[in-house]
């Protein structure tokens, strides 16, 4: 089993809800991320799926050290990210990078492509062989013309801009890249280009990805393991096959069932959930999914189900990719066969 490069333990982020301008008083809190634990192994892709408000973007910021958690730890190669000094954190940034969702807002419109891709070197010092050479190399790696270093972002298409963002993330030769919805802003015909690029880069440079997305098909395609999030918690985690072919949590099953398949022979969603995701400021007691769940019983309102191996789930391979589910009544149901 590959070595774990990133370990997340009980990560929690509560945002205070305040009222008043001058004298702010707290009137509640949004539990954006609430006790999330997982690990990322070297060279693998962990997919994080969930609907809006499930806390996946906040989780990305926490992993990048952009927000301080309310509690919990993120360990990078065994060292607690939030216990690091500023200088150490800066050095850690070389090892962990992020690709952002929107290629139109994530590049400074007043900087040339060369300056954007070269900025990591301006911050952390020039690479061997000089900045210019390396920038051109990076552009070539992501499939852009190195002659375009002096152009500005608005001269490129969405897919090309996302490649520029990827080149910037690659510049410092990181080990881990957090991809926050990297293809969801792109046209369908361009999405596949960027996904293939990410896969190629992973193979070539031994990268580990945390791949955050709402598109379950995209996540299945690129991930080795998948964690499903609902209202700040992971409800089910397992390898890609366990989650997609043998889901045990009702939410996972509903989610999979709701995804339309580009094949008219398979019509319609089998499970259509009622209602909307409750507000993370006021989540339901016990199991957070119980308000929309067709299996809910009294115990679900009182006892919060732990994320653990369930008898109803496939055991998974013994190589150590446990299939965990946070449901009292976890049973396998094949939704998409």
């Amino acid at each position: 089993m590959a070595e774990e490069i990133l370990q997340v333990q009980g990560l929690t982020k509560h945002f205070p809800l305040t009222q008043g301008v001058l004298f702010q008083r707290q009137v509640g809190q949004v539990k954006a991320v609430d006790g999330v634990s997982f690990e990322l192994r070297k060279g693998e892709t962990l997919g994080l799926v969930g609907e809006s408000g499930c806390g996946k973007s906040t989780l990305a910021k926490l992993l990048m050290g952009m927000e301080r958690p309310t509690s919990g730890t993120v360990r990078f190669e065994g060292r607690d990210v939030f216990g690091l000094s500023r200088g150490e954190l800066r050095r850690l940034r070389r090892r962990m990078q992020m690709v952002m969702q929107d290629p139109y807002t994530s590049l400074n419109p007043r900087m040339t492509v060369g300056d954007i891709v070269g900025e990591p070197f301006a911050v952390h010092g020039d690479p061997e062989g000089g900045r210019r050479t390396r920038v051109r190399e990076l552009l070539e790696i992501v499939g852009l013309d190195p002659e375009h270093v002096n152009r500005y972002p608005h001269q490129f298409s969405g897919g090309q801009r996302q490649r520029i963002g990827i080149a910037r993330a690659l510049a410092l030769r990181p080990d881990v890249i957090i991809c926050d919805e990297p293809v969801s802003a792109l046209d369908v015909s361009v999405q596949a280009q960027v996904m293939n690029l990410l896969a190629d880069l992973q193979r070539e440079f031994g990268l580990s990805y945390v791949f955050i997305a709402h598109d379950l098909a995209v996540v299945r395609h690129i991930s080795d393991r998948v964690a499903v999030m609902y209202l700040g918690k992971i409800v089910e985690v397992g390898d890609e096959e366990q989650i997609y072919d043998h889901p045990t949590h009702p939410y996972t099953q509903a989610l999979l069932s709701a995804v339309p398949v580009p094949d008219p022979a398979r019509k319609g969603a089998e499970i259509v959930l009622e209602g909307d995701v409750p507000s993370p400021a006021n989540p339901p007691s016990g199991c957070r999914f119980r308000t929309r769940c067709w299996k809910a019983e009294d115990i679900c309102a009182t006892d919060e189900p732990a994320l653990e191996p369930r008898p109803g789930a496939t055991a998974g391979d013994d190589a150590g990719s446990p299939h965990l589910s946070a449901c009292h009544f976890a049973t396998e149901k094949i939704v998409r066969g």
Binding site: A192, H221, L256
Partner: peptide
């Protein structure tokens, strides 16, 4: 090309063949 470039939730490990270029 479009059909070959979208990942499908019901199919495992299918290679994506993107359409080259941009609209």
């Amino acid at each position: 090309g479009l059909l070959a470039s979208v990942p499908r939730i019901d199919v495992r490990g299918r290679a994506l063949t993107p359409i080259k270029g941009a609209p």
